[in-house]
């Protein structure tokens, strides 16, 4: 019983770790360490809930835990900038690939959003969820989820306006 539970859980984690880690990265605005912490916490919760939901829908369960934890993280702990003595190396054009540069821009832009707006944007545009499911995952009314997403996108338009050029 316990062995089959462990096997199923390990299989799911090994198969979905990469995708869920990327989701966690987007939800926290690109902080790898924090994304890993978040994903580890979500997986521990999934382990205890595995007998209930392991056969049904473990991924939506993890997604809900990640999104809610990321959306309320600002109320629990300050994850913002910390002063350092030496500035870290910045990505520059030429020494990194275009994909990495684009990812860096995206993460910097997402990091400037409030957590709830960022979570709504990621769930809507990366996870392709409609407003109703975004609200369900975040545990808020549909109007609130829609407002978070539209405000977040509006802010990203201003930040990424020079990267994503308008058509025409």
């Amino acid at each position: 019983m316990e062995q089959s539970r462990a096997d199923g859980f390990d299989g799911f984690v090994a198969a979905r770790w990469s995708a869920l880690f990327h989701l966690a990265c987007l939800l926290v605005g690109g902080d790898r360490h924090r994304a890993e912490d978040l994903l580890q916490e979500a997986m521990v919760k999934l382990w205890f809930a595995w007998p209930r939901i392991g056969e049904e829908a473990p991924e939506p369960y993890v997604r809900r835990i990640l999104a809610r934890a990321a959306a309320r993280s600002a109320r629990r702990r300050w994850w913002g900038e910390r002063p350092v003595e030496q500035l870290p190396d910045r990505a520059e054009a030429g020494d990194v690939s275009a994909v990495v540069a684009e990812r860096s821009r995206l993460e910097v832009a997402l990091a400037q959003l409030p957590p709830a707006q960022r979570a709504a944007v990621v769930l809507r545009y990366y996870q392709d969820l409609p407003d109703r499911q975004v609200a369900e995952v975040l545990g808020c009314p549909v109007g609130t989820a829609r407002s978070h997403a539209s405000r977040g996108v509006a802010r990203l338009r201003r930040i990424l306006g020079d990267v994503i050029e308008p058509v025409g």
């Binding site: 684009e102 990812r103 545009y125 996108v153 994503i164």
Partner: peptide, 15 residues
């Protein structure tokens, strides 16, 4: 267009 590009960037940035 912006929203489609945003979705594409989110998907393509996965490592």
């Amino acid at each position: 267009h912006f929203e489609r590009e945003l979705a594409r960037m989110m998907r393509d940035s996965q490592e």
